[in-house]
Design a protein around this nucleic acid. Structure first.
Length: 151
DNA sequence: GCCAACGTTGGC
DNA sequence: GCCAACGTTGGC
């Protein structure tokens, strides 16, 4: 089982949205590296740390899990959609995504500030200078440090 | 293939 | 709202 940190702007799609939806496709990723993680490296039951970005208190808001194999992101085919990609075709889709299922919402967000101030977590990929990837792997060791911070 | 210009991300 | 850092685009 692998562990992933997946960013979403809560004004677009928050942990609360996922809680009410139960399961949702992680559509809209338009970065090749992030797509490759979903397409090539994710497996059903992988753990997902649901991260709120670009908001008042950025941080990990809850947990989810990978709930499907990779499949085409349908928004790439919809003209006028924010995520429409004219270069993509039904026969050769460019963008793949997975479904994620809600697991848990934390009572309190595990803030970016608190993660940054934990020296054992300095290695986390998403913290690295200039990292803007919306999906990054989390190591088992990092997860072990993070877990007690979840509540 | 280079690289300038542009658009986006995301913390602050 | 600012802006650093990055990814993408497209002319050449």
């Amino acid at each position: 089982m692998s562990i992933w940190l997946m960013k979403s702007e809560p004004s677009e799609y928050s942990i609360d949205h996922l809680q009410s939806d139960g399961t949702s496709s992680w559509f809209g990723v338009r970065n090749y590296q992030a797509r490759n993680y979903m397409r090539d490296s994710m497996n059903i039951w992988d753990r997902v740390l649901f991260y709120h970005s670009n908001c008042k208190t950025p941080g990990i808001a809850g947990l989810a899990e990978v709930a499907s194999l990779p499949h085409p992101d349908i928004t790439q085919f919809i003209p006028g959609d924010k995520h429409y990609d004219p270069k993509s075709t039904q026969l050769k889709p460019i963008w793949q995504c997975v479904d994620v299922r809600f697991v848990q919402k934390f009572w309190e967000i595990v803030s970016l500030a608190s993660i940054r101030s934990t020296s054992w977590l300095e290695s986390m990929k998403f913290l690295q200078k200039g990292s803007r990837l919306s999906i990054t792997p989390v190591t088992e060791a990092e997860y072990q440090i993070l877990e007690p911070m979840f509540h």
